[in-house]
């Protein structure tokens, strides 16, 4: 019954090992955030957020990249949220739980979720630009090059594909929080299935649908790979005014300044500033998603 000295040491060692790897995670986050905040905080100013880059990006602001990121996530959401929500509605409300079609859709969604983002970029290039875009040019533009090249529309659609699984899964989860009792109550009152979905199920899960949207947006805001070939530009002197224009994005702007700039050292403060802005943006989006999700959980447990 006496604990052996050896086992005791072993236990302490194992606990120490697990604890230190856990602490390492905290350390990484702290170091990362601290470095970015210290490096970027002096850069943050109204000026920096609202003006164009100047002098080969060594001076000026990042407004086109902020604008491009915002436009990208808005267009992406317009495509991904309704499409994803409708798919989730089919899966939870119409498809039979274990039917072949539901299983196939779920498998496809899971597969979409694990495909590396660069492959989405290549798909966008091949499908949207080379196929759809070129066809559109041949049909509507008399062969003149307009849609068959990278632009914000194709980039947004590619990004929408990437975020689709996030939207579908979180909307599905939200729809499932609506108790079946309520569906039965509505149907028993002579409501059609669609009336039940529209008046009971969707209002009862709207915050979950919003969580899904925000998560998708925050994922999209930070991704660069899918838009690399499909629309993002190194530098554009004007803001995108049409769906066929190229655009700048925060994530790509950081990449460009650190690797492609003529004078990397000189762009350093702007790199930090841009990184800080991107980080804050994704933080804010994620925190609002967490808050919404927490409120749903609370409601569900009541």
């Amino acid at each position: 019954m006496i604990r052996s000295y050896k086992n005791n040491i072993k236990g302490i060692l194992i606990e120490g090992l697990t604890l230190s790897s856990a602490l390492l995670i905290i350390a990484i986050v702290v170091v990362m955030v601290t470095v970015i905040v210290i490096g970027g905080k002096d850069q943050l100013s109204w000026e920096f957020l609202t003006s164009f880059p100047e002098d080969g990006m060594t001076k000026g602001g990042i407004f086109p990249a902020i604008y491009g990121t915002a436009l990208l996530v808005i267009l992406m959401s317009i495509a991904a949220v309704p499409f994803g929500t409708i798919t989730a509605i089919y899966l939870t409300e119409y498809a039979k739980e274990n039917s072949v079609i539901a299983k196939t859709i779920r498998f496809a969604v899971r597969t979409l979720a694990v495909i590396p983002s660069i492959i989405y970029g290549l798909f966008g290039l091949g499908f949207f630009i080379k196929f759809v875009g070129t066809q559109m040019d041949n049909t509507f533009m008399g062969g003149e090059l307009k849609w068959g090249q990278p632009n914000i529309l194709w980039a947004s659609l590619t990004m929408a594909l990437l975020t689709l699984p996030v939207v579908i899964v979180s909307v599905e989860e939200a729809l499932k929080t609506v108790p079946n009792d309520l569906r039965a109550a509505s149907l028993a009152l002579g409501a059609t299935k669609w009336q039940t979905i529209r008046k009971v199920v969707i209002p009862g899960s709207i915050s979950g649908i919003m969580t899904g949207t925000i998560l998708a947006v925050s994922r999209g805001a930070g991704e660069v790979a899918p838009i690399l070939f499909t629309g993002v530009a190194y530098y554009v002197a004007t803001l995108p005014a049409s769906l066929s224009d190229q655009f700048m994005v925060l994530g790509y702007h950081i990449y460009v300044m650190t690797t492609q700039s003529a004078n990397v050292d000189q762009t350093m403060p702007i790199q930090f500033g841009t990184t800080l802005v991107l980080l804050m943006l994704t933080f804010i989006l994620n925190i609002s998603a967490i808050v919404l999700r927490y409120r749903i959980r609370k409601k569900k447990s009541n």
Binding site: D181, L182, A184, S186, A188, K199
Partner: peptide
Amino acid sequence: GMVFQKSNPFAKSIFENVAYGPRI
């Protein structure tokens, strides 16, 4: 019409619960 074992009002106001059927 049907009344269930477990009361299942909608997460709406008292008025809207009763008005649900007439509205649809």
